[in-house]
């Protein structure tokens, strides 16, 4: 497939935004049972707005993918059948919840809905946050299933696709939370950093699994089944258009096999070992700069990962365009 940068930015940006929000809620949940100190309301407020900014940036990027962005509102219509439509609905709901969550924290308006003496899990921010967590995971599933549901794009059609989207989002979100927290609540940096490393390692295993799976994939369609001629030797002589067509542009990455392979190694280094190394060094030396570098490295790596995710997928229609 042809990697569209609008979609690459959309998925990586909202993934980091979702991960950052989940990181905030993780700390609140830990703090409510007394396992961690609860940071000030302004901490949650500021970081929620950063998460929101990432989500908005992702949404803006997605508009560049549309031929008719002015009709984008129509895309909420077919949520019964289309994962894309579901994503279009869940994303603004999630954005709204993140906004409300941050605002409540910022204003310090946090009544306990279950009475004065109820446990802190009954607090308004906690409940809004919980809805946000559900929306965040729903959004990960929607985003992943947009690709995972296309059964003949065999590289994508696996449960590993939504799992990878989820883990990459959470890993980059926790890495970002580590960076942001270094300035605002230093006592939480190690907590975030630890989880960021753990999720990055977890994502390494699931993405590694999908890489191995895709390497040995056997494509069900062949040129013989595509044109229905049962012969082992079929050569294409004409593609039906001299100057190329939509079919020759949309479904091919247009780069060499060597380039594709090098991008794989680029993302394998930039997403996993390098950020982990930088996180460990940053945590040991209390260096915000190193932590920041860890996030930037991982994010750039995720851009490469997403590019590779698209480029590696072989669409069966390419069988009709053998000489690209």
């Amino acid at each position: 497939m042809h990697p569209a940068f609008s979609v690459i930015f959309l998925t990586t940006l909202i993934g980091a935004g979702q991960g950052l929000f989940l990181a905030l809620m993780t700390v609140q949940a830990y703090a409510d049972i007394g396992a961690l100190p609860l940071p000030a309301g302004s901490y949650f407020g500021a970081n929620s707005m950063i998460a929101l900014a990432l989500l908005v940036a992702g949404l803006v990027a997605s508009f560049f993918h549309l031929g008719r962005p002015e009709r984008a509102w129509r895309s909420a219509a077919m949520w019964r059948t289309s994962w894309l439509s579901r994503e279009v609905i869940v994303l603004p709901i999630f954005m709204g919840l993140v906004f409300v969550y941050g605002l409540l924290h910022y204003l310090g308006y946090n009544p306990n809905l279950f009475g004065e003496n109820a446990p802190p899990q009954g607090e308004l921010t906690y409940l809004v946050g919980l809805l946000g967590v559900i929306a965040a995971f729903a959004l990960f599933i929607c985003t992943g299933m947009i690709y995972g549901c296309l059964k003949f794009l065999q590289e994508w059609s696996t449960p590993l696709t939504p799992i990878n989207y989820t883990l990459f989002g959470i890993a980059s979100g926790f890495t970002l939370a580590t960076v942001l927290t270094a300035g605002m609540a230093p006592e939480l940096v190690k907590f975030y950093g630890g989880w960021a490393i753990a999720f990055t390692v977890l994502a390494f295993f699931t993405r590694g699994a999908s890489l191995i799976r895709n390497q040995r994939i056997k494509h069900r369609s062949t040129l013989a089944s595509a044109i229905g001629v049962r012969h082992a030797q079929i050569q294409q002589k004409a593609q039906g258009a001299m100057g190329g067509s939509f079919n020759t542009r949309e479904y091919f990455h247009g780069k060499t096999a060597a380039f594709l392979k090098s991008i794989k190694w680029v993302f394998l280094v930039l997403v996993f070992p390098l950020p982990i190394l930088l996180l460990v060094l940053g945590l040991q030396n209390d260096s915000g700069a190193l932590l920041g570098l860890a996030f930037v490295t991982q994010y750039v790596g995720l851009l490469a990962e997403r590019w590779f995710f698209f480029a590696q997928a072989k669409h069966p229609q390419n069988l009709y365009y053998q000489t690209i």
Binding site: G67, A72, L84, L153, E250, P316, Y320
Partner: peptide
Amino acid sequence: DKCIGCKYCTWACPYGAREIDE
């Protein structure tokens, strides 16, 4: 009049039967 040009349907068609009007 309803199409937003997101091209998702072209990903979903194994035959490459759809083309966007540029």
